[in-house]
Design a protein around this nucleic acid. Structure first.
Length: 417
DNA sequence: TCTGGGGTCCTAGGACCC
DNA sequence: TCTGGGGTCCTAGGACCC
């Protein structure tokens, strides 16, 4: 049996852990650049605040309803997530951290009282972390996802739903659309609807072989999983990333090639930092620039850049990225976003020697190690390349960011006596 | 004025090989 | 005049996830 534990409105709940004065009040969290609403607590949902809408469209409505608004604070959310996963890992050894706010757990076959155990998980996370979660329990991952959704949706379940018999999961499936099934997106659900398949139950009753012909092996697995036949396993080891991306939209449109190069320098620096953390190297970069999709002249372009050898050196990668951006720049285009992808990542070891290409030098490695050490100790961005610019005006807007309560000494919560 | 960011997997079809 | 068959690898693009 699998359990799926998932934080309720995770980002919004992270914000209220250190702000008990906000309990019972509506809270929303914005995406990067204060662009869209990405999390709403239940009070905000009750006010009818929609998910994933542009902030500017609902700004006045939110202010009128006195909703508390936060810019995203990923340093805080990442740290709360790590703590939550530690608690879950201590309770159930076999577990997979699926996303920042979710984990799959494998329950021992000796666990009989699933509902009771689910309640225990929920209460423990609340007690240790202050994070409200829901728990779904079922024999497959797809069903556990559905049970978790049911736990959130059906008030009588009080946040815990165990579907350990076909009777129970079919009861739930009849109340869910195909779109609510994990792995079925809007495209596939539309096509299913045209075939007369509307509920999750309809989908579960369809023929896996036939559906594989119409769609793909992915949907076949989903159907089998909906019938209690496990096709997906627990990934306990984090799978090494195949690519690392860093892209952001700007707070103001960029018309100047130097500013665009500053931006790509910053993102390249961040991407390289992530790559070194994961002990990987790259020799292929993907760089793109684009104007806004919503207004003005449309322009987007991209370049793949092959490097002479595998490296994790921020200087080398930044230089290549800046040259690429210079090539992609067009006068008169109001640039809105750019980004870099580090592709074809490979492990640092074993070193594959290339007869003609120089290897990354020892100086380069120790320079990068020092760069990372300084930034780890004094905060990200303390040390960087001059090409990144200083306090650029296009920098991401984060007007309403809360303190990083758990990771910065200067921002610890203050208690008044 | 203001519309997020970072990933994975699968398939179809082309290029190429013998 | 007649112009095979089977296989692998790679890439672009679609669809999905949080």
């Amino acid at each position: 049996m699998y359990a799926l534990v998932d934080g309720n409105s995770f980002y919004a709940s992270c914000e209220t852990i250190f702000r008990p004065d906000l309990l019972g009040q509506p809270v929303v969290v914005l995406s990067n650049n204060d662009g869209c609403i990405v999390a709403r607590n239940k009070e905000a949902k009750a006010l009818g605040v929609p998910d994933l809408v542009p902030y500017f469209q609902v700004k006045s409505m939110l202010e009128q309803a006195q909703v508390h608004i936060f810019s995203s604070n990923y340093e805080l959310y990442g740290d709360i997530s790590r703590r939550m996963m530690d608690v879950l890992g201590a309770m159930v050894g076999d577990h997979e951290v699926y996303s920042i706010d979710e984990a799959f757990l494998r329950l021992l076959s000796s666990t009989r009282e699933y509902k009771t155990f689910g309640k225990h998980l929920k209460d423990t996370v609340m007690q240790c972390i202050g994070m409200p979660v829901c728990v779904g329990i079922a024999p497959t991952k797809t069903l556990a996802k559905m049970a978790n959704k049911a736990a959130k949706k059906i008030p009588g379940l009080q946040g815990v739903c165990a579907m350990d018999t076909a009777g129970k999961w079919q009861w739930v499936q009849k109340r869910f659309t195909t779109r609510e099934v994990w792995g079925v997106g809007s495209q596939i659900s539309d096509k299913l609807a045209a075939m007369g398949i509307h509920t999750a139950y309809d989908l579960a009753m369809s023929s896996p072989r036939q559906m594989r012909k119409h769609f793909s092996v992915v949907l076949e697995r989903t159907i089998r999983e909906l019938n209690g036949e496990p096709c997906l396993t627990l990934d306990q080891q984090p799978v090494p990333k195949k690519e690392i991306m860093c892209s952001r939209s700007f707070s103001h449109k960029i018309h100047d090639p130097v500013e665009l190069q500053q931006a790509i320098s910053q993102y390249a620096g961040r991407a390289c930092e992530k790559m070194r953390q994961q002990e990987r190297l790259t020799n292929l970069l993907w760089i793109f620039v684009e104007s806004s999709r919503f207004s003005g002249p449309q322009y987007s372009n991209q370049l793949m850049v092959k490097l002479d050898s595998f490296t994790n050196d921020t200087c080398v990668i930044t230089e290549a990225a800046r040259l690429a951006v210079a090539e992609l720049f067009r006068p008169g285009v109001p640039f809105h976003k750019c980004g870099i992808g580090l592709m074809e990542l490979k492990e640092r070891q074993p070193e594959q020697l290339h007869f003609f290409s120089p290897q990354q030098s020892e100086e380069s490695r120790s320079l990068m190690a020092s760069l990372d050490a300084v930034n780890r100790r004094y905060g990200r961005g303390t040390l960087g390349l001059a090409s990144q610019g200083i306090n650029p005006k296009w920098k991401m807007a984060r007007e309403k960011m809360s303190p990083r309560y758990t990771t910065q000494w200067a921002e610890l919560p203050k208690v008044r006596c």
